[in-house]
Design a protein around this nucleic acid. Structure first.
Lengths: 337, 337
DNA sequence: TTAATTTGTGCAATCGTTCCCGACAACGTT
DNA sequence: AACGTTGTCGGGAACGATTGCACAAATTAA
């Protein structure tokens, strides 16, 4: 059906050997100008394209990187992906995106699928359900370059790129405090995720800085990160049932924010009259709507770019890299209302 | 660095030939049960994984399909991608996503990148700027399977999967009419896009069905499909400057809807008091916010699934397929406010 | 003129896998 | 006893491209 022209076709047509043709196309100095001209012109005429798969087999690399995110239908990740692509395509790499939908099983299966020598490196943001990372350590130990971004695993010694989650959480919580709210709850994703830990720390630091006694009952975890409506609903209902009902919530993620608003709408809780919300979100339509919520915005595009640059550096390193760094980018606070 | 185990390693360790090992692993009938057992056990022990690149070279297919969309940060496309992946991964295919950001140049470059024998087929939704499709016809003529979805090119004879855009546009427009609006404008993407043509037809049909005289000045095109704020702003301003200012707008796309709301917010036009809006959108957070806008929702996930099934059918067909079909899926009208 | 060097090209191996042959034993059939 | 079958296995050629090495022809140096 689809029969691409090969170097052999050119060689046969021109009465040359494949080696000569290959060298002519790669513009080696040891081929005469005349031969080069003939080969190049004929190659262009019949539309020769080198077969990347044959090259991959020979060079033992695929010129493609795998990306593992929870889902592309998430402003943060889609912006990060744009950053990833902007670097990767320029450097001649394909980008293969896979979604975990916050499921551990899908993460393992996707990583396994991407590995097995068909990608040269991995850009990973862990799923909220992931606690065991042996599927990644195994590959990393065998030499597959991996760079983490957003949700990182500190157990693996490699490059990492994250936003300053603690500062961002501090800013958001402090903004709620300065707006006059006293009883500030915190709705977050699963407790073992790096971003959850960092954001929780920022939330607690802000309370402490303003002499507000932290209330453990005010902190609610959603292991599925907002993917399950019921989970979010239960958490919110528990908060609302407390004797000292919170008057504001700092929400730690994009999906959780929308889940939260959804629950409030169904429970007829007015935002921000009955309950103020501030949270992490990279959605750019946030300020179009009411209720508008104050948000912490991460430099997702830059995070994607940086992570990719670091991954390519690992991939193309001549000698094994042993010195790794964790880059932390600052967040922005968008105050609305 | 990363040295995967090959069939040769197994052969050497077990004192067999590579052919025998290969056959044992593929469970051929001509290998004795004893040998099979030894090979399989050893392969499992050292964690053998067949090299997909070597397979691709031999089988002359990559077991991967390319997807061309305008951007993943779009509810419709991210849902369609989920549908695509749900089928592709089950059938053992990788999915390589590329974004055009509504640019013709990027579409050509992405398609070229994906082709050249590294994908077995293409799932394409055209960019809003694309009028010349020779980059696709060329590949299609040479036998590369292509299936269009959403924004299709009728010039190419292949499978196509779309929503019933005309009916959806009819429903949305009729809803505005039945809500009492008389002067209904239409804001749409570039004029040559299949979806624009179909949605315009539905809009006009609805006006006609209710004996409303169509006003050509009420129809505004945005060739960049909402990617440029200024373009959308100009279109809206022209509508507002008309002697008979419209009282409602039927918007033909997701990005245009948010662009539209953005312009109205900046111009202090109250929605829906001063201007009602209804439009195509697959966002699932639409009903969380005010102003809530009535929307036409496409079965994006199913469209993705169907398109992928049809593409895989083309890819895996033993004989060239000559009979092509265009599947049209119904839309849903979500009335809000 | 002869030897040494340069220049241009081809041969063959390689990457990992599959698969067409052919080899060769151990049978069963006439 | 001669021949055909069947069951197991290995050799080697592909797939498309690159590249070290060999080697002829042409050029230069002695």
């Amino acid at each position: 059906m689809f029969e691409p022209v090969t170097i052999k076709d050119i060689a046969k047509a021109l009465g040359l050997s494949t080696s000569t043709v290959s060298r002519a196309l790669r513009d080696t100095h040891e081929i005469s100008a005349a031969t080069k001209k003939v080969v190049l012109e004929y190659a262009k005429e019949i539309g020769y394209q080198p077969n990347p798969i044959a090259l991959s087999l020979k060079e033992r690399r695929s010129k493609s990187i795998g990306v593992v995110v929870s889902e592309v239908a998430n402003s943060y990740f889609s912006q990060a992906i744009n950053g990833i692509e902007s670097i990767a395509y320029d450097r001649g790499y394909h980008v293969i995106i896979s979604q975990t939908h916050e499921s551990f099983e899908r993460e393992v299966s996707n990583v396994q699928h991407l590995a097995s020598r068909s990608v040269d490196g991995l850009l990973v943001s862990l799923s909220s359900q992931t606690t065991d990372i042996s599927h990644l350590t195994h590959l990393h130990d065998r030499g597959l370059p991996i760079v983490f971004f957003d949700r990182v695993a500190d157990e693996i010694d490699t490059h990492k790129v994250i936003a300053n989650n603690q500062q961002g959480a501090f800013d958001a919580t402090e903004h709620l405090i300065k707006s006059g709210f006293k009883r500030i709850a915190h709705l977050t994703s699963s407790s073992h995720l790096s971003i959850s830990i960092e954001r929780l720390a920022g939330y607690e630091a802000a309370l402490k800085a303003h002499n507000i006694k932290p209330n453990p009952a005010y902190v609610k975890f959603c292991p599925h990160g907002g993917m399950l409506y019921e989970e979010t609903e239960t958490a919110i209902k528990e908060l609302l049932a407390l004797p000292e009902k919170p008057d504001a919530i700092f929400v730690a993620g994009d999906r959780l924010s929308t889940g939260c608003l959804s629950v409030f709408k169904n429970l007829n809780v007015a935002v921000p009259k009955d309950m103020a919300i501030a949270g992490f979100s990279n959605s750019d339509v946030l300020d179009l709507f009411n209720p508008s919520i104050t948000s912490i915005r991460q430099p997702a595009f830059e995070i994607g770019q940086l992570a990719t640059q670091m991954l390519l550096q690992l991939i193309e390193a001549k000698y094994p890299v042993v010195e790794f760094e964790k880059k932390i980018l600052e967040t922005d606070l968008f105050i609305r209302n």
